[in-house]
Structures are given as structure tokens and as C-alpha cells.
Design a protein around this nucleic acid. Sequence first.
DNA 1: GGGATATAGACAGTGCGACTATCCGATACT
DNA 2: AGTATCGGATAGTCGCACTGTCTATATCCC
Lengths: 214, 214
Amino acid sequence: MRMAELSKTSGIPVATIKFYLRERLLPAGERTGPNQSSYGEEHLRRLRLIRGLLEVGGLSVATARGVIDAVDSELPLAHSFGVAQRAVSTTIEPGDLDPEALAGIDRLIEDWHVSADNPGRLAAARVLETFETLGQRDERNWFSRYAAAALLVAEADLDQVAARASREAMAETVVIGTVLGDALFSGLRCAAQEHVATLRHPVVSELDPAPTRE
Amino acid sequence: MRMAELSKTSGIPVATIKFYLRERLLPAGERTGPNQSSYGEEHLRRLRLIRGLLEVGGLSVATARGVIDAVDSELPLAHSFGVAQRAVSTTIEPGDLDPEALAGIDRLIEDWHVSADNPGRLAAARVLETFETLGQRDERNWFSRYAAAALLVAEADLDQVAARASREAMAETVVIGTVLGDALFSGLRCAAQEHVATLRHPVVSELDPAPTRE
DNA sequence: GGGATATAGACAGTGCGACTATCCGATACT
DNA sequence: AGTATCGGATAGTCGCACTGTCTATATCCC
């Protein structure tokens, strides 16, 4: 497959594909001459992965490169998990974090096995800190109910990964699952909010009629 | 309070505060002269909210303005919910979405009361579409387990909102909860993944020792 | 075999979003 | 009186994700 065809079948402009090549998101094609290359099915797959990470997962190009490298590497699965987790959470220095908030999160997950530098633990502490700064209080175990739901989701994630055959397939699922899982949960939570709100306050749908499905 | 003090106590540079004033994220201070104003506690609160939305929630300035307007408005709570939900999910045209994927999500949440233009429903369909494009399969009900967890979280969210006294307080909690809730869940999910992975493969922590808490 | 089209690679340019810096004339403290 | 600070307008910076242009070959199709 030549560049023009790769561009047409993927729907991505040639200039953008060249940019991805430059940024090492996409491996170079097989050389067929001094200034000619041919691309295969794996480049198409890779392009789809790149677009998924960038558009649906909202990753930056630099982060996506790290994630893709983790899929390609021979390192143990735990490494891919770490990279993927760092990709979806903003890096936080434990230094500029209220120790009180960190302790609050640790109390919440005290019977979990989580290392001190887990990016999610720090991100959660950051949220707790912000939440309290904004004068909000934890009503009816809001935080611990989130933790319980997160546990369910994590079990599902590990099951999903375990179902894959090879280490490479697992690493790919780790990355895709971690990055897309965030977006999936966010969407489903939003739908569930409307559902629960409608159940609790049925009158709302009459005052503010919304188009229904089908 | 004058500008310099507002800047110092909030830790935000004067130029940035002026920028937020220009962008109508922050209301103007009380005029004390033709070119002098004084700011109060509510400006400090508002600045904290702005930083929370931008830094922790990852919103853009334009989106944050919409969210803040929703808090300030007199419109019913459902409106605030809608704005907050649209703020955390990327806008998707139902047109450029695989109808198959949309049908898949609808099957997943068929007993939920969700309107057709719910942004989360569309976002979830987008994820399903991408997921399948990347050659992944739904193993052991990955999707429906996410939906179940989302329902738990949504119930917690509505309880959290219901605990507030006034409509204004509720609207504020809706916005803060929706925006920060996404970040919170993302972090807790990440921590839970490490916990579950450690439980299932205890050997990993010996091969790749990680610092433990405390 | 020769002209139109395509290609790899280098490099400059674009558009946008979130600030950041500079100025100005008008107060406000001391 | 003199220095510092203010609100407001305008312009500039920086990073990021592309996008366009250029050159020297290479391939396709008469």
C-alpha cells in the first residue's frame, strides 16, 4: 500500500500521517526504494489506535507515543499498566498536595494494596483537596461509594485483560481498556445520572420535555 | 480587598485575574471610583472554583464560563445538570456515529430512562465504536459491569446533591460533583486496578518492587 | 520514453487556547 | 509631592497539533 492509499482508507490527510511518522507514533513503512515505502495492514491498525487515543481518549501526542511504546515493548504487563495509568491521570507532585487530603484518600482505601506513587491515589487526593476547598462536604459516603464502584470496574478491567491470549494482546487491551474505559465510564455515568434523576423527580420531564429515544 | 491582595491570597497572578475578568469567569468587583474596585470573599471563592474546573476538571475557559453561568442562573436544576454533563463530555454529532454502536449502548441501558440527546449516551457509543474498530471484544460483560458501576455512582451523585439546602447550593454541587466526580473516579479506578492486580498476581510486586505507603 | 502524478523528507507556517506583558491615564497612600 | 497601584485596552508569548511548501526522485500510463 502506498501513502495515498493509506491516507484514503484511513481518512487521515497525508500531511498528518507524515506528522505521525515524524513523531514516531507510526512506524516507518517498508522501504522499496531510496524515497519510496509501502505500508501494510498493521499501519492501518496503528493509525486507528492513534486516532482512538487522541480523539476518544483525549491524550496528547507525546503521551500517546509513550502508550504506544508500552504496547510494543517486551516489558512485563505491569509496566504497560503503569504507563496507561499515568497517561490518563495528570502528573501530580506529592509535595504540593495537602497531606490531610492524602490521608483522607488513604483512609478510604486502607484495605487496598496500592503503592505510594500510584498516580490514581494522588489524583484522587487532589480531587478531595479541591472538593473541600470549594466548601463541599462528603454526604452519605459519596467518596466511599465511588471507591466501591471503582473496585467493580477494576475487576471487570482485569477480567477483560485476562481473557486475551498473548502478552502483546494483553498489553494492547490494558492500554485500550484503561484509556477508553475512562471515557466509557464518564459517558455511562452521565446517562445514569439522567436515569436516576428521572426516576426520582418524574415531573421534571414534563416541565422540560426532552426528545425520547426511538 | 484590592487587586493585589486578591492576587496574593489566591496565589493567581494579577494578569491572569484580569484575564478571567475579561473572559467573564469572574464578576467585576464593587466599584469604589471611576477606575477602582474592591473584591470580596465571593471573588476568592469564585477563583477557587475556576481553578478547580480548569486544573482538576480539565475544562476549557469557554466551557468553564458556561458551567459557572449555569450555577449563577435561576434556571431549574435539570439545566445545570445538562450543562455540567456537556462540559465533561466531548460534543458528538449523532450523524457521524455508527448506528450499530448506538444500538449496542441502547441495548446495554435499555431499562434506563435516558433521552436521545444525552451526551453520555453518545459518548459511550463513540467508545463502543472505537473499541470494536480496534479489534477488542467485550469479555465477561465488561460493558454491562461498567454500566452497573455507573448506576451506583449516579445514585451517590444524586444523594450528594439532594443533601444540599437551597437550589443555588444544589446547582453548585451538581457542577462540582459532575466535573470533579469524573476525575475522582478516574483516580480511584487506577488505584483499584493496582489493588486487584496485586491480589491476583502477588508475584509481580516481588519482581518489580514498588515503594509502599507509610 | 516522456510527461503527469506521487513520494520521502526537511522545514516553515497556521490557528487556537491560555495566559503574560506593556502602556496609559487616574487614583490612593505617606 | 511623589511614589505605588489601579482598571482597562492592546499586543505579545508559548505550546500544541497539525498543514503547506519545496526538492529531488520514482512510478504510472500512454
